[in-house]
Amino acid sequence: MIDKGWLTVGGIGRWAIDTFLRLGFAARFLGLTLLNSGVCLRRPRLVVREVYFSGVLSLVIILVSGLFVGMVLGLQGYQTLKTYGSESALGVLVALSLLRELGPVITALLFASRAGSAVTAEIGLMKATEQLRAMEMMAVDPIARVVAPRFWAGVISTPLLTAMFTAMGIYGGYLVGVVLLGVDEGSFWSQMQNSVDFREDVVNGLLKSLAFGFAISWIAVFEGYDAPPTAEGVSGATTRTVVTSALTILFLDYILTSLMFRGL
């Protein structure tokens, strides 16, 4: 939608002020969520329940996607490496691409669209149907009871799902490379073992996914809590969660990659 107001100086100014105000609200909301997170330690059951809904129920899509991404990597990598006669390095190629980039990024994108959007819609609808207000009237803080458990469940789930995605991807690469195309099994695994560094590759990949999980959860709970209490408002917030998460993930990925892998 093109608004006429956009074209004026005042329109741009209004847009900038609104954007920064919203960023301020989001930051304050994150602070409140972190401050009210004590309940998650006192009653871990609340978080476990949300990890089930966000994490466990996302497993199928994560595992299947991981397998296919790994298989495609195996196929493409084999074609390219074969030209230089170094098919035996296929294991390294598959493992490093998945551990450093594809695993954390694709898992985060899938998690944002599968679980992040669900969290936004759920909190938004709870707000629209006055459930959050009812909770407040019962002297129960909705940020502690509803928001914090969902936030931490997202932060915990993302690295775990990333690990499973990556493992599944490597298996997919193995399936195509070794079983289907006949790359030597010994060199596939041993070269991978030699070239993959635990701290450099595995830990850095998981740190990335932790950062993505934090960002997705923050965006998802904020959009839900901030959604206008109407059908239109909730659907808009859900869309914004997916779009903002995707852009944030890709932007963060560039920043983190340039910080983590500077020596390469």
Partner: peptide
């Protein structure tokens, strides 16, 4: 406020049950 609210109960327009 939370202490005072413990003395209050409220029925919302459409119930506001936790779905």
């Amino acid at each position: 406020l939370y202490r005072l609210r413990r003395k209050m109960g409220m029925l919302f327009q459409f119930g506001a049950l936790f779905t």
